[in-house]
Nucleic acid binder design. Structure first.
Lengths: 339, 339
DNA sequence: CTGTTAGCGCATTCAC
DNA sequence: GTGAATGCGCTAACAG
């Protein structure tokens, strides 16, 4: 009986020894099988698997500079907008043989910067979703390695944009047709490209129709934030609101309920991103956002870039549309709410 | 004018050269500042930052075996149960200086195994949440490096368990008190420990009260799966259902609505995990699950284990409770549904 | 306190 | 086709 006791995982040397070949041969058996004879490749592979050998990515990366890792960083993993995006990206990376780091910046630019820095030397590329970093920092990262942005329109960089502006336009139109003349936009994170786009679209669409507008700020895109601004929203005298995202809309719905304002009879609400589906009550009218497609396309672009595809400055725009459900209705007559 | 053009990031040698010290000194300035004089540490640090030097984790890891990376793998990132858990774990890892890999097994044991294998040599430890792998495989992983399980009760291993069984018990009691005598359990993934626990709790609690039970299977824990089993659920003749999780419950709610069965008047529904909050309509009665706490505790345990804490076989149980909302009511009289 | 030496596991020139 | 060196960037003994 032979006792072979090795606590540490088998290395390329172990395989080489057992197979009676040099370490270089083992290396090639995995990295460039084409350079070896069919026979040796198979033999080495076989011995490797019986030994339980797996090429050490770390060592390989140190030697080649290729890590076969990517990182995806988001402002808030728990925001339902991101999981589908992450999931799709992860899946795409997976089939391409890449592992993925996940970073959560907690909506904070400095934290995001730290994360990126910490990860930079371990990954071949970044997907920065709804990045809160200033353009210069993003460009600094991109100068070193491939980056693809999601919902951030920095020229000269690869980016996939979910064009919710068009959806917001439709949302305004929808409210207008229902007779609303005074509407309010509940904004999201100031550093968010999406928020800027939506605000801009809101402003121009309402102006064009001669509607009265106002705007209140929800600090973070959360249920709680939405609930808290309810009074402020009502104080504007508007009869309908378009919110930064569904979370805020959902919070507003809750706040309205507490304030005994019935939706949609007395007040209309439209969300954005359509991540809650029909699960709210009343079912939320919202602007769709194809976050899953965004994630999938983002990895594709990234992998392409990492494989030497030189075309950065790709600008991929995903269309959106208004999904009308049950939180919007004909405007109540003004001046009688809450009395 | 001196042109210094280096495309690759600065290495320890660059800093050493610029600071007029040896590479070892630079290394210590970052890794063991205590071994150096205050003065040199500061000087090296300063030069390092002006050069934009960041220690190369990959090289460091190759040399030390310490990667300062962990991995967290889940069956489905998009399942709302996991994001808060991931977020909490990520945050904890972050303050401890660890970066985190994310793996999505897509509910598949083989994929999970592959992921773990690919990641194993790049991380110091794993958080396996709701692992679908068989015990032996999990133990094999744990034999090589620290692992902490979430919602998986394998003895001898560190694990944090969300004790939904107690909540299910309460759910059954709740239905019983409302006069329900025939109830059905809509099960989730067979490989899921949580599902087994819930099924077991359901069975024993109902038996003790002499209730009539049945069970139907939802392949995956999704809205769609829940919706699809609606007919099957109704065919059991039960007046109330307890589902594997909120997603399935939500789907069932939708299916019931389509079938013109009103909830809770004609049929009661109780979910599990309480991830939808009050956002469904009617607001879902559910068993709470502290997924965020689970994530936080899981990293703590893992970091502890990686830092040499020898006590594996920690079994941390998180209590749950029944959150009664609006999908449960007194049982209708039997024999009249749907006619 | 600091410099010197020797690898960590692998991929890659070169020779043969 | 295959083997023998060399180095990726860093840390860990050893010296001094």
């Amino acid at each position: 009986m032979t006792h072979v006791k090795k606590s540490s995982p088998p290395t390329i040397s172990d395989v080489a020894l057992a197979a009676g070949v040099s370490r270089a041969t083992v290396s090639r058996a995995f990295g460039r099988p084409g350079l070896l004879s069919q026979a040796t490749v198979e033999r080495v592979q076989k011995i490797a698997t019986t030994l339980g050998y797996t090429p050490n990515q770390t060592a390989r990366a140190l030697s080649t500079g290729r890590h076969t890792n990517i990182a995806i960083v988001v402002p808030d993993v728990a925001n339902p907008f991101f999981p589908p995006l992450i999931r799709a990206a992860q899946a795409g990376a997976d089939v391409a043989g890449y592992s993925v780091f996940l970073g959560d910046s907690d909506e904070d630019a400095a934290r995001e910067q730290t994360l990126v820095q910490r990860l930079a030397l371990q990954v071949e590329g970044f997907i920065l979703a709804s990045s809160r970093m200033p353009d210069e920092q993003i460009q600094a990262v991109a100068a070193r390695q491939p980056v693809v942005l999601v919902n951030r329109d920095t020229s000269g960089m690869a980016r996939v944009l979910i064009d919710t502006a068009a959806g917001i336009e439709a949302a305004v139109e929808h409210l207008f047709e229902l007779g609303h003349t005074a509407v309010v936009y509940v904004s999201g994170p100031a550093a968010s490209w999406s928020d800027q786009e939506r605000r801009r679209a809101f402003r121009s669409a309402t102006r064009r129709r001669g509607m009265t507008i106002s705007s209140v700020a929800a600090s973070r895109p959360t249920f709680e934030a939405g609930r808290k601004v309810t009074a402020e929203v009502l104080a504007t005298g508007a009869t309908g609101a378009i919110t930064f995202d569904d979370l805020v809309a959902h919070g507003l719905l809750a706040g309205l309920l507490e304030a005994k304002i019935s939706v949609p009879e007395q007040f209309s609400v439209i969300g954005c991103d359509d991540v809650l589906g029909a699960s709210t009550y009343p079912a939320l009218t919202s602007v769709s956002a194809r976050c899953e497609a965004a994630g999938q396309i983002a990895v594709e672009l990234l992998i392409n870039a990492m494989h030497g595809g030189q075309k950065s400055d790709v600008r991929c725009v995903l269309e959106t549309r208004l999904v009308v459900r049950a939180t919007t209705a004909v405007a109540r007559k003004p001046g009688r709410r809450g009395r």
